[in-house]
């Protein structure tokens, strides 16, 4: 028992080193498998069966895919409707409540969020596995903050009014929980193509909610949406304060859940049982 490593190589595994040895053997098998797979793929490219093969991306696609039979369409509909990031998971509430006071703000925030969410999530799904969780979590935030600088320069140059009205919520987009949580929960465990679909869906789901809330708040506060007057001489200034945002979010979440229940009930009626388990 002097040298446990030599013991492992002969086959008798015991005690403390059991798991390490098992892990090592698994890793060797895995590497052998991926190497054979790689050479097979390169052969296929040479023969012209498949167009191209990128070992890094395609292997990650193949090996780290969650085994689920949900298609791209299902992922998209889940992200927007059934598992809306704001209304179901309570992600990205702060910008909606704090800065979603006019439709312009809402549109600007949703575009900004998507511009940061998309590259961070795609990069997380390609490279995220190479890092440990603490490094990964800080990299998402730093990457988002770096990406925000050119975007905010552009905004400052062309739309200074929007930058003024967003205030501190412009820099706070980079720490929005929407970006980091989505990357950590979905992008890490899924393929690049599914991550792209999911980030589009998440961005759209967030944009729908923030635009709805901010349009209602602007209508209540000024009687007009983006200059178009709907309610003449109407002004309810507390609508710009945060409590209106929270209450509207609650009402919209309840309405969304009611719609979801209705849609699931209808689906069960038409397609039989098992659909509503989503």
């Amino acid at each position: 028992m002097k040298n446990p490593k030599s013991q492992n190589s002969t086959g008798s595994i015991s005690g403390k080193h059991k798991h390490a040895a098992l892990r090592k053997r698994l890793r060797q098998n895995f590497r052998r498998l991926t190497e054979s797979h790689r050479s097979w793929k390169e052969d296929a490219v040479r023969r012209g069966h498949i167009r191209s093969y990128n070992p890094r991306i395609d292997d990650i696609d193949r090996t780290f895919q969650i085994r689920s039979n949900s298609s791209a369409k299902d992922v998209f509909i889940d992200g927007v409707f059934y598992k809306n990031p704001v209304l179901v998971h309570a992600l990205g509430v702060a910008p909606i409540v704090g800065a979603g006071t006019s439709l312009k703000n809402g549109i600007a925030l949703s575009i900004l969020t998507f511009l940061l969410l998309f590259p961070v999530n795609v990069l997380a799904s390609i490279l995220g596995r190479n890092f440990k969780p603490p490094q990964r979590l800080s990299l998402y935030v730093i990457l988002a903050a770096v990406l925000l600088i050119p975007v905010s320069r552009y905004l400052q140059y062309y739309y200074p009014n929007i930058v003024n009205s967003l205030g501190i919520f412009l820099p706070l987009v980079s720490v929005s929980s929407l970006i980091s949580v989505r990357a950590e929960v979905f992008a890490i465990r899924n393929s690049v193509s599914r991550t792209i679909v999911d980030s589009f869906a998440t961005g759209l789901g967030f944009a729908l909610v923030i635009c709805l809330v901010s349009a209602i708040r602007e209508l209540l506060a000024t009687g007009a949406i983006n200059g178009v007057v709907f309610l003449n001489q109407f002004s309810f200034t507390p609508a710009t304060m945060s409590f209106t945002g929270f209450m509207l979010l609650g009402l919209i979440a309840a309405g969304g859940r009611k719609l979801r229940q209705y849609a699931i009930a209808k689906k069960v009626e038409t397609e039989g049982k098992g659909v509503g388990e989503r």
Partner: peptide, 15 residues
């Protein structure tokens, strides 16, 4: 049923 959970929390924080 529709208000149970998250929607009720939002509205409570709003109050």
């Amino acid at each position: 049923d529709a208000f149970r959970g998250l929607p009720a929390r939002f509205i409570y924080i709003g109050f």
